[in-house]
Nucleic acid binder design. Structure first.
Lengths: 219, 219
DNA sequence: TAGCATACTGAACATGAGTTCAGTCAATCG
DNA sequence: CGATTGACTGAACTCATGTTCAGTATGCTA
């Protein structure tokens, strides 16, 4: 299917890497076999090992390539005045295989994905601190935790996109899904979900005294 | 470590199943080997297949057992007046292996985890509809999507707990982490993060006319 | 042109892991 | 008591898959 045609000017190593990104992203690192990747790239399995040393080495090459691509996108976004890390991420939808690879890495908890997560937390925290000063965001006495939670939710939602899409009756990665998630997100992030601050007040009272009640963990 | 001692009155099949839940939850279905599970349960690999037919059959038994356990907890919570699905879930912290198994299943996208996700969406939607009428929650003209998003975020955060914990400098599954996440969640769910409804208004304007701007996807 | 490095192949190798199976042991049943 | 059933073991089998390797071709350099 995605095999090589005549006018493919990528080197064999680049083809192998790109096919590996696609397979790793689609079925995961373990289930993707060296032989599959090789045949998709139109080469022998031996050549994969010749270029990358081992399957693990191939993964590292994929990590590096995807990370570089993300960094490039982010810098381009910053240059064009859009400093949002997630703008760069959603821009990745143009390169779906890369986005899928990232999400799969996060699922599998690879070191590369941990680095990316932490980097995005840093970038988002800087952006949000700036937005607070600009009056766009509510100030928080707990910005760091807030950012980590939001980034975690955001990525978590992407990682579980399959389930969210199914529950909404939409196709994963479809425009419809993105729009509906954006609408719901906007609602929560603008107004919250509680009618008043009763829960939060109760929580603060408990924090002021002893331990919080277990039922407060619920959302 | 977790091997069998003299006063273990579980049947061999039950020990195998419990050890399988622990291994599948800790390292995933593929990386957990039948031989490992067998030796942890103090039996031979052959016996595992004798009782469960295949490794896949063993997984199904684990799925069924964990789902039953969850259902039981939820019913107990409902009986005691606490109708929150997540109360049952956080109660699962008492059975950490079960919770870990569930999160791992979600990560791996198994059919069983899809059923659980959908079930929790249904339960949460019913609960939230009720809470809206009771005046505890803001009404929404999009409750279903809202619920799916919240459940997705919630589970997503749990699935990526390792990353969130690292970014917060806390231990996964620690009380400290739970408290800090609860505090930040409460803040977002009570007030949102935006200082005003400017973004939401802009979104609605765009929805009323043509297509929404791509930058609106950002959070 | 000779030589050498690099790209590349196909077969072979090694190992890990799911599964099969013949056979033992113990408890239950008629 | 004899027989049947089910629990259980340990070895063997099979297959998938990462890896190695000897060998070929090609293009560059001296």
């Amino acid at each position: 299917m995605s095999s090589v045609n005549r006018q493919d000017d990528r080197t064999a190593a680049a083809r192998i890497r790109d096919e590996a990104i696609a397979r790793f992203g689609d079925v995961g690192f373990q289930k993707a076999t060296v032989r599959d990747i090789a045949s998709a790239a139109g080469v022998s399995a031996g050549l994969v090992l010749h270029h990358f040393g081992s399957k693990e080495g191939l993964r590292e090459a994929c990590d590096a390539h995807v990370a570089a691509q993300y960094g490039e996108r982010r810098n381009r976004a910053v240059d064009s005045g859009n400093t949002d890390a997630f703008a760069a991420l959603s821009g990745l939808r143009e390169e779906l295989p890369h986005l899928k690879y990232l999400l799969r890495s996060l699922r599998e908890g690879t070191p590369a994905s941990a680095r990316l997560f932490d980097e995005i937390v840093r970038e988002t925290e800087a952006l949000m601190a700036h937005s607070v000063e600009a009056g766009v965001l509510r100030p928080s006495d707990n910005l760091h935790d807030l950012v980590v939670l939001l980034v975690g939710w955001q990525f978590g939602g992407l990682v579980l996109q399959e389930h969210i899409a199914r529950a909404m009756g939409a196709e994963p990665f479809s425009d419809e899904l993105v729009v509906r998630i954006a609408r719901a997100s906007l609602e929560v992030l603008t107004h919250g979900v509680f009618a008043d601050s009763g829960y939060e007040d109760a929580w603060k009272d408990f924090e002021a005294s002893g331990e919080p009640p277990p039922s407060a963990e619920r959302l």
